[in-house]
């Protein structure tokens, strides 16, 4: 049970760090070989799509360079609920499935005079995480963000 709580705690901490745009601290929760994907099944083209696939180095480059880009700065708020944690028999790894709903609180995306301050449903999906457990700490080995959305409007530059 303790390992389950450790995994759950790491997922919730990651959610808070992502919401706070504390990208470096979020990456500190991730293994050196961390793999990150945003995927979605498309019934339109009958294809399991990958919308983004990056390793830890790629994520670090992304968040470093994004300030050079024009972007929608409307902050994202993730509501995460950990549904299941399955710890391996040796207690060294775990798989976890969490529900995630992402709200976007408008800032400068469209017409800020009218829209800023309004929170809108942005994404619906799941986090499917693989974690390592060592010395009482859980680290992310793999995160698949499995989106239901295929209508994404302006999309986002930022990790979900």
């Amino acid at each position: 049970m303790e390992n389950t709580n450790i995994v759950r705690d790491a997922i919730y901490r990651a959610t808070m760090l992502l919401d706070g745009q504390k990208w470096d601290q979020w990456l500190d929760l991730c293994d050196d070989d961390f793999k990150y994907e945003i995927k979605s099944w498309s019934p339109e083209i009958n294809y399991d799509m990958t919308y983004l696939q990056l390793d830890r180095k790629g994520l670090a480059s992304l968040v470093k360079l994004l300030p050079m880009h024009n972007t929608d700065h409307s902050p994202l708020t993730r509501h995460t609920t950990v549904y299941s944690v399955d710890v391996a028999e040796d207690g060294k790894t775990a798989k976890a499935v969490s529900s995630v709903v992402v709200y976007q609180t408008m800032l400068d995306g469209i017409n800020s005079h009218i829209d800023s301050g309004e929170s809108r449903l942005f994404l619906v999906g799941k986090y499917i995480d693989t974690m390592s457990i060592e010395d009482g700490k859980a680290r992310f080995l793999n995160r698949e963000v499995r989106l239901e959305n295929r209508r994404l409007d302006k999309g986002s530059h930022w990790p979900i």
Binding site: Y51, I110, G155
Partner: peptide, 19 residues
Amino acid sequence: NSIWGPFGRNLHEDLIGVQ
């Protein structure tokens, strides 16, 4: 995806522009 995906670098900017 790196440029044209919904989480890519350019498409997001294009869509902000036309909106």
